[in-house]
Computed example of a mutant assay.
Amino acid sequence: MANLRHILVVRLSAIGDIAMLVPVLQTFTKTYPHVKITVLSRPFVKPFFENMPNVSFFAADVNGIHKGIRGIYKLYKTLKDFHFDAIADMHNVIRTKILRSYFRFYDLKMVKIDKGRKDKRALTRPENKVFKPLERTHQRYADVFEKLGYPIDLYTHKFPERAPVSEKVSAFLKRHDIDLKRHTLIGIAPFAHYNSKSYPLDLMKEVILTLAKQPNLKLLIFGGGRKELTLVKNMIEGIDNASNVIGRIPFKEELNLIAQLKLMVSMDSANSHLAAMLNVKTVTLWGATHPYAGFLPFRHPLSSCLIPDLVKYPKLPSSVYGNVVVKGYEDCMRSILPQTVVAKVLENLK
Rank of each mutant, 00 (worst) to 15 (best):
T340P: 04
T78D: 15
C305Y: 02
G238M: 11
A288D: 08
F49N: 03
L349A: 05
T282F: 05
Y321K: 05
P338E: 02
E50T: 10
S304K: 02
H83Y: 09
P338L: 11
L217A: 00
L316T: 08
S101A: 12
K168D: 09
F49T: 03
H6N: 14
H273I: 05
K281S: 09
L229C: 04
F82G: 03
A288H: 03
I249N: 08
L278G: 02
F82A: 12
K80H: 10
Y292A: 00
F48A: 03
A86V: 01
K252G: 14
R11H: 06
E347N: 09
I98Q: 11
P190F: 05
K67C: 13
L296W: 02
M204D: 05
E206F: 01
R121P: 00
L8H: 02
D89F: 00
G16A: 06
F58P: 05
V207H: 12
A19H: 02
V320K: 03
G149V: 03
K227N: 12
V39I: 13
K327L: 07
R100Q: 13
R42I: 12
T230V: 11
S303F: 05
Y106I: 00
L79G: 05
V111C: 05
L220Y: 07
L123A: 06
A293Y: 02
V265D: 06
F222G: 06
A171T: 14
